[in-house]
């Protein structure tokens, strides 16, 4: 016996699906709205440009902004070239075979590893074994490993989207393979590669567990790559968890959310222009 006729089932199903979608979007809007409404009023110029006082109870977040930019920037500066080179190797220098499956398998597995394990690894490997200590560079190297699969994947997709005929034209005009890659393929794939890089910056900024164990949590201005530092996400965690200052926690979270939002908008914008050009 059937409860519903196919036409009724169709109506119920469509309504359910749309409700689920609406709830999800509602959650997203709620999270962003909640943080921004409670936090933005406290994001003042002095909040952005002053050092914290009394462990962050008052004062600003300048050292954390610097630490975040340094750690995330350095991470992407390391992972970017490595990831793009890997993608170039996979697309232009080999045919599909054992080696490419092996490399892809490695990248896919790396992508699934939780950040806390990256943190532990970075802690024993970079800070202790290599003696870098809790520092910006330890954090950056750990994050670089973490975002590497994303960069490889997006770069590979972007490079594959460059028409094969461009490569033939370039060879036909007497370029070597390397010239063809650097002068024709990579420039054409650049927007796609940038999208992956920008999204990786976003992930690096958001990351907390891995940075906590490798870059440390000292709330002061990092003066070199080997200084311990506290990133924004970690600062927010510490402020809210230890109940140091709710207003500053909200304000810090607002800065985080705004950064992530902007990075996503930038990534989306670049990608859109790219798609239009490649058609």
């Amino acid at each position: 016996m059937r409860l519903l006729s196919p036409a009724q089932a169709q109506k119920v199903a469509v309504a359910t699906m749309w409700t689920l979608a609406a709830i999800t979007i509602g959650i997203l809007v709620f999270i962003i709205g909640y943080i921004l409404v409670l936090g933005l009023p406290y994001v003042t110029w002095s909040f952005l440009t002053e050092a914290p006082r009394q462990m962050g109870r008052s004062g600003g977040i300048l050292p954390m902004i610097v630490a975040t930019v340094a750690v995330a920037g350095l991470a992407v500066l390391i992972a970017g070239p490595v990831g793009v080179a890997t993608a170039v190797y996979l697309t232009e220098y080999t045919r599909e075979g054992r080696l490419t499956s092996f490399i892809r398998f490695g990248a896919d597995c790396l992508a699934g590893i939780p950040s806390i394990i990256f943190g532990l690894f970075g802690f024993v490997f970079f800070t202790i074994t290599l003696g870098m200590g809790l520092s910006v560079i330890s954090g950056a190297l750990t994050l670089a490993l973490m975002v590497l699969p994303t960069i490889i994947r997006t770069a590979e997709v972007a490079i594959r989207a460059v028409p094969y005929s461009y490569r033939e034209v370039s060879y036909g005009l007497g370029t070597t393979r390397w010239q063809m890659i650097t002068k024709v393929v990579l420039p054409s794939a650049l927007p796609g590669i940038c999208t992956g890089v920008v999204l990786s910056v976003g992930r690096s900024i958001s990351e907390t567990a891995a940075v906590m164990l490798t870059a440390g949590s000292a709330p002061r201005m990092p003066e070199s790559m080997f200084d311990s530092s506290r990133t924004l996400a970690l600062h927010f965690y510490i402020l809210s968890r230890e109940g140091i200052s709710m207003t500053n926690a909200y304000a810090t979270a607002s800065v985080l959310i705004i950064s992530i939002l902007s990075l996503n908008v930038i990534a989306y914008w670049i990608m859109n222009r790219f798609m239009r050009r490649v058609r």
Binding site: V82, A85, T86, V88, Y89, L90, Y93, T94, L99, F102, I103, F105, G106, A107, C109, L110, I113, I117, F118, L120, F121, V124, F125, T129, L145, L148, P149, I152, T176, R177, W178
Partner: peptide, 30 residues
């Protein structure tokens, strides 16, 4: 030169796998 570039790129391309291997080794070792 092309061969040299191919070889260098291959080494770099192995960094994801090497990273995975390092993580595995160090986590298990500890």
């Amino acid at each position: 030169q092309d061969k040299a570039i191919a070889f260098a790129l291959m080494l770099i391309a192995l960094s994801a796998v090497s990273g995975l291997a390092l993580i595995t080794v160090f986590i298990f070792k500890e």
